[in-house]
Design a protein around this nucleic acid. Structure first.
Length: 591
RNA sequence: GGAGCUGUGGUGUAGAUGGUUAACAUAUCGGCCUGUCAAGCCGAAGACCGCGGGUUCGAGUCCCGUCAGCUCCGCCA
């Protein structure tokens, strides 16, 4: 690449070896320190900062120019790199032992005073940062995140290339399919009244590429889901999408583990242990109350079905009679929680769907609790023993359906977790997910992963007779309580695929209409195939140590899915609507 | 759809029980200053307290509504 005309070096790349060199630099004015006859400017560019020195004696005209510099002015300078004298070295700056004695300066563009400081560790309303995102990104730590993301993406591409994967693009304008998240729709001008959907993932296309004989596909691809946002969920997000034929789950796991190890080693300097732990879904739920357990700390849930049945406590016994379960969570040294704290936890448990939360303070001679009267001393001892409880602990119990019991205690486990920031990363594969769950609202079975997931071969015979008992060949990759990826072995047999559609309540006509192309493709010699998708935004956020993926997305949406910089979404002209033959409904009256 | 938190000069904050000149820091502007790097010193300007309504003699402070941001539940195959 040719040299930039305004600069011969990046500020941050200059060092003591450049002393006596003539260089040209260009960038933004950071801090300005005006001593009257001597002015220091911190010139900032992508790479770092270089101190510029303007001496009154060096020329009146240049000095007058320097006096007029303000924050964020864009300037190009030319001068000589000089070493600083011993007593003026700034050890806090990478370039702190040199400075640029400016001889020529050109102001390329002035700047309004920015609405917030262009520096690291600012504490500004995110509102403002998002409205002026281009200024927010100018801050070194944000440019650093962009760079980190670039490096991660490049490593992924190089790694996949090394293993013969082809990066192939798939359509952004595709068709809406039932199941899954709400689609973003795009109206068609050529086909009035018809709509494209933006892809929730390239799922079908990557499977079709397997039918095409690609064998190893990947793509770093934007996906769209019109659902409510979270700190780790944006309406558009990026997946590392992977699909393989003739590969097998073991190879896929090894491939992904190698990739994760590479990223963590190169970016975080951490050698992670391979292979990753694997845990069946049932076990994850039973022990941690989550299908994405954080293994950095213990606090495992304890199954109390066998003991709870011996109590006189109706809440426990009736839950068990109804086929539910009773589990406990031990909060070490929980006595520092007040009665009020426990009431708050109870409220939380209710909001999460439990009918209530039972709690006891473990004391020298028994339990202090409203429910202690339902338990005799022997039973209390047994429960204490099973939960490994000692004096000053608090025990929390939930009795409900198995699912609710696990979910609620799992939430409380996370909520009450000790500080584990410094712990080493704990990767794991969660495997053996159920193929279906039952949707109470829709009164039908739904795919737990997606409808193209293969059932375990030995469970195929019970597909129709016991759908909820069927296990899927699906897996999630979990890191420290965050789901960073998920995938499955796919159905490559059109007959089984049709049975699955039927179980999901799709009529034959419907599945023909919506998925006919897939069923047909599967009948033309589809190879056995499977794959995975990794959440790139989450991955990068974990690598950069950020809580929210907004930090690693250059132009993210707010929790209400709008862009504060462009004000998207926005109204469109009537002309645009009429071209699309779209008429807006009148605003609904109240109620 | 629901819950919680936040909203005061450009920015970050303070403003007990409602009382009338809304405080501090920093940024900004001006002056002084040749070695600073959180430069320093002196001075100036800058908010009617997200918005709307209500209670009150009087509201940044209480009430209702609304908007925006954040977090969580639902939702996210």
């Amino acid at each position: 690449m040719g040299k930039a005309d305004k600069k011969t070096h990046y500020c941050g790349t200059l060092n003591h070896d450049h002393v006596n060199n003539r260089v040209k630099l260009a960038g933004w004015v950071g801090k300005r320190r005006d001593h009257g006859g001597l002015i220091f400017i911190d010139l900032r560019d992508r790479s770092g900062v270089m101190q510029l020195v303007f001496d009154q004696q060096a020329g009146a005209e240049l000095f007058r120019q320097a006096e007029n510099l303000r924050s964020e002015y864009v300037v190009a300078v030319e001068g000589e790199v000089v070493g600083r004298s011993e007593d003026t070295i700034n050890p806090d700056l990478p370039t702190g032992d040199i400075e640029l004695r400016v001889e020529v300066m050109e102001v390329l563009n002035p700047s309004k005073t920015p609405p917030f400081y262009i520096e690291d560790d600012i504490y500004v309303d995110e509102n403002l940062r998002l409205r002026y995102r281009y200024l927010d990104l100018r801050r070194p730590e944000m440019l650093g995140r962009l760079q980190l993301r670039h490096r991660a993406v490049k490593m992924v591409r190089d790694y996949m290339d090394r293993y013969d994967f082809l990066e192939i693009e798939t359509p952004m304008l595709t068709r809406s399919t039932p199941e899954g998240a709400r689609d973003f729709l795009v109206p068609s001008r050529m086909h009035p009244g018809e709509f494209y959907a933006l892809p929730q993932s390239p799922q079908l296309f990557k499977q079709l590429l397997m039918v095409s004989g690609v064998e190893r596909y990947f793509q770093i691809v934007r996906c769209f889901r019109d659902e409510d946002l979270r700190a780790d969920r944006q309406p558009e997000f990026t997946q590392v999408d992977i699909e393989t034929s003739f590969f097998g789950q073991e190879n896929l796991f090894a491939l992904i583990e190698g990739l994760a190890a590479l990223l963590w080693r190169e970016i975080k300097g951490i050698d992670i242990k391979l292979p990753f732990l694997r845990m069946p879904y049932r076990e994850a739920m039973n022990r941690f109350g989550s299908d994405k357990p954080d293994l950095r700390f213990g606090m495992e849930l304890v199954d109390l079905n066998d003991l709870a049945v011996k109590s006189q406590f109706k809440v426990f016994t009736s839950a068990l009679e109804n086929g539910g379960s009773v589990k406990g969570l031990r909060v070490e040294n929980g006595k520092k929680m007040s009665r009020k704290d426990l009431d708050d936890l109870t409220l939380l448990a209710r909001q999460l769907g439990a009918r209530g939360l039972a709690w006891v303070y473990v004391e020298e001679n028994g339990w202090r609790s409203p429910i202690s009267k339902f338990f005799d001393n022997a039973l209390i001892d047994d429960i204490n023993r099973k939960m490994n409880a000692g004096v000053d602990d608090v025990l929390l119990f939930v009795a409900d359906t198995w699912q609710t019991t696990c979910n609620v205690l799992g939430y409380l486990r996370r909520h009450l977790a000790p500080d584990v920031i410094a712990a080493a990363p704990h990767f794991l594969w969660v495997v053996d997910f159920p193929l279906f769950h039952y949707d109470e609202e829709e009164k039908r079975f739904e795919s737990d992963h997606h409808p193209f997931t293969a059932p375990r071969v030995e469970d195929v015979p019970i597909l129709e007779s016991d759908p909820l008992g069927v296990r899927a060949q699906a897996y999630d990759l979990v890191l420290d309580g965050v789901e960073i990826g998920g995938g499955s072995t796919r159905i490559h047999d059109s007959a089984i695929q049709e049975r699955i559609f039927k179980l999901l309540g799709l009529s034959e006509e419907e599945s023909r209409e919506k998925f006919g192309f897939l069923l047909e493709a599967l009948s033309f010699g589809a190879p056995p195939h499977g794959g995975i998708a990794l959440g790139l935004d989450r991955l990068v956020a974990l690598l950069s140590g950020d809580e929210s993926i907004r930090q690693v997305i250059p132009f993210p949406k707010t929790a209400a899915a709008s862009c504060l910089m462009t004000s998207a979404p926005a109204n469109v002209d009537d002309k645009q609507l009429s071209e699309l033959k779209i008429e807006l409904q009148k605003q609904q009256e109240e109620d």
